[in-house]
Design a protein around this nucleic acid. Structure first.
Length: 140
DNA sequence: GCCAACGTTGGC
DNA sequence: GCCAACGTTGGC
């Protein structure tokens, strides 16, 4: 399936379990273990070349960098039933200045982010405008 | 470590 | 098919 423009996402991970540094060390990581239908739908909608913010949950509470979807539409290798989706991601860019959850909440243009509205969703969508705003914040 | 939010499960 | 009980996530 081809699309005209890349889509943007935000993926969460607990840094003590699998953080940005782990992804960099591996070079490519498989995003699996998702057992939430909405998150799965987001995973299934990803395409190669899409970009995703990498967010540290529970500890850090900030977006630390950007990764790209390197392989899309695969079946979760940790799931025997074969009904859960997964993708592979590669690190692209580490933010000079991580964008914290507090900073996101303080920015009116980001008030409608899926990250804010559904705080428990581990894979969420990001609009092109939200993507732009956060990239600007990461450079300040 | 606590607890609110929310998704899932299971009895009826 | 409703809804109470339970489990999990994730901010604080």
């Amino acid at each position: 399936m081809t699309r005209q423009s890349p889509h943007y996402w935000l993926i969460k991970s607990e840094p003590f379990k699998y953080g940005w540094d782990d992804l960099v060390a591996e070079g490519e990581g498989t995003w699996d273990g998702v057992r939430n239908y909405q998150a799965r739908n987001n995973l299934a909608a990803m395409a190669v070349g899409d970009e995703a913010f990498f967010y540290h949950s529970r500890e850090g509470l900030e977006i630390v960098g950007i990764c790209t979807i390197s392989v899309a539409g695969i079946t979760d290798p940790t799931d025997e039933t074969g009904k859960w989706a997964a993708v592979k991601v590669k690190p692209r860019e580490k933010f000079a200045h991580p964008v914290t959850l507090a900073a996101i909440k303080a920015e009116p243009r980001l008030a409608e982010m899926q990250l804010i509205r559904q705080s428990r969703l581990s894979v969420s969508g990001v609009t092109a405008q939200e993507w732009q705003v956060i990239c600007e914040m990461a450079q300040d």
